[in-house]
Design a protein around this nucleic acid. Structure first.
Length: 479
RNA sequence: GUCCCCAUCGUCUAUCGGUUAGGACAUUGGCCUUUCAAGCCAAUAAGGCGGGUUCGAUUCCCGCUGGGGACGCCA
């Protein structure tokens, strides 16, 4: 029976990251699963920052963490609590365990331990703490010492994992582990259990890398005379090598993907499907995740992070998003690309809308849009050499003259002029449209030529075409 | 090395003893076409191996092989 079943309260989950770097997509997924499970069940989601490793924890990481969660739309109901602020409570728990005899003081030093460990392994044995201090009953004044949990000699430390089913290990495999350092502070295992207990956490959903720790945690719950929560271990996210994602090898931070131009909806959708499925459904909005997520849909084998799938999802969301939502998301990338602030004019907005089919990321979308925001056309040498030949220049000059007297600047009128030029010169439409495209944008990629002309507008279009024509005729782009 | 875990198309996965083994991404071909895309259509592609259990195994059990994770006074 779990704590929450005893108290009759609802589901309470938590995300307990340590602020020692950026928000990792593996952590983000754990956060998402916990969030989703709480939302689905009408439970409560708690955020707890495990910053007890003072050497590695930084405020900057914590800021990044919260920012990443907010960006992904993962909101919490309680917290953020900081484990570092609960030191007194952890000390109290250690004292209690010492009192009840469930723990004892150990004066073995790291060096001594290491020597004995090596000896045991060399002799072909397997090392767990050898229990030298186990029955010595050292008092508080024994000098520098750690505190170890006193495990039963044997006995099954098991739990029924909500993903992996019956799991566990025998106490003899684990040995008496340290729960408090020589300086008196508690280790993660003890602190985490105490916090989960105090915060009445009912379901601990965490990465499978924690599986080997769970027997010890079960033992700590027992020593504290408490019932363990439900545990659900989630298979790890793997990199291209098939190994656990590594900071060195793989792109892992949420911030990284954000910088690369992936939208939050896509990243969230991507990671939720890494290890979880719901029939054949591939696309899940934030609300659907909160609505449909369950632990039964979580698989048991590691999932390789597939960048192509992320790109596809990103494309999907960029296409289906309201333009009003897409524009502000695109602006920063446009400004980055241009190196200056950009005002989102109606023309820019229209071009972004037309270009959304043409990019997998906001970076690409911005890249395809930037030309309109530049004062001067920047020609791609290759595109210009191929399309702005002297012959093309003559054609463009003719075309510009006719466009200048076109009755209107709309698709029908523009098409009539293009058709006429193509017919009279007996060339394919491509020979007309492509030079215009390069004249207007400097490159070979843009929306349909009439749409592009409309977006650029009559005056600027004529100016750019005439300018490019003049330079092309002079052979400026030929070599 | 020890302990634990996992195993369906290249990848993410569906299947909860009986299916022509389904979907998605990627790939390939076709259509469309003024560029690049997108879109549409189609194709290729999977139960690691060996034993059981069963009328019947991808599905249950065992072994092997392969892969992964954990082995801190980190979290």
């Amino acid at each position: 029976m779990t704590a929450n079943q005893q108290t009759g309260e609802g589901v309470r989950t938590r995300f307990a990251p340590s602020p020692t770097g950026f928000l990792h997509i593996g952590s983000a997924r754990t956060a998402l699963f916990n969030w989703a499970y709480a939302r689905r069940t009408g439970g409560t989601y708690v955020l707890r920052v495990e910053d007890t490793d003072r050497d590695r924890s930084t405020e900057e990481s914590e800021r990044q963490l919260l920012e990443g969660l907010a960006w992904l739309g993962i909101d919490w109901d309680e917290g953020p609590f900081r484990q570092s602020e609960r030191g007194a409570r952890h000390r109290e728990a250690v004292a209690e365990l010492l009192e009840t005899g469930q723990a004892y003081r150990c004066i073995c030093t790291r060096d001594e331990l290491e020597v004995r460990r090596q000896e045991t392994i060399a002799a072909g044995g397997k090392w767990t703490y050898d229990g030298l201090c186990r029955d010595r009953e050292y008092a508080a004044d024994c000098g520098e010492h750690t505190v170890r949990l006193r495990l039963p000699e044997t006995g099954w430390l098991g739990w029924d994992d909500l993903v992996f089913g019956p799991s566990g290990q025998d106490a003899s495999e684990i040995g008496d582990r340290i729960i408090a350092r020589a300086d008196g502070t508690a280790l993660y295992h003890l602190a985490g259990v105490v916090d989960d207990l105090d915060m009445d956490i009912s379901h601990v959903i965490r990465g499978a890398d924690h599986q080997p720790n769970t027997p010890l945690h079960v033992a700590i719950y027992r020593a504290l005379d408490a019932d363990p929560p439900e545990f659900a271990h989630v298979p790890l996210i793997l990199g291209d090598t098939g190994k656990k994602l590594s900071k060195r090898r793989d792109p892992v931070s949420v911030q990284h993907f954000r910088d690369e131009g992936y939208v939050a909806d896509a990243l969230r959708n991507w990671i939720v499907r890494l290890g979880w499925s719901h029939g054949d459904q591939e696309v899940f909005s934030r609300d659907e995740i909160a609505d449909l997520f369950d632990l039964e849909g979580v698989g048991r084998s590691g999932a390789r992070a597939d960048a192509d799938k992320l790109a596809w999802l990103n494309h999907h969301y960029i296409q289906h998003m309201d333009l009003a939502e897409l524009l502000p998301l695109t602006s920063p990338y446009l400004e980055r690309s241009l190196g200056k602030p950009v005002e989102t004019s109606p023309a820019i907005a229209k071009l972004v809308d037309l270009n959304r089919l043409r990019g997998k990321t906001l970076v690409e979308l911005a890249g395809h849009t930037a030309w309109l925001a530049r004062d001067e056309v920047v020609f791609d040498p290759k595109a210009a050499r191929k399309n702005l030949t002297p012959d093309a220049g003559v054609l463009l000059r003719d075309l510009a003259a006719r466009l200048a007297v076109a009755p209107a600047w709309d698709e029908a009128s523009l098409a009539a002029v293009f058709d006429a030029v193509a017919a009279e010169r007996e060339v394919k439409m491509g020979k007309v449209a492509q030079p215009v495209r390069v004249a207007l944008t400097g490159g070979t990629v843009s929306p349909g030529i009439y749409e592009t002309l409309e977006v650029v507008g009559r005056d600027l279009s004529l100016a750019r075409i005439e300018d490019a024509a003049a330079r092309a005729v002079k052979g400026e782009f030929s070599s």
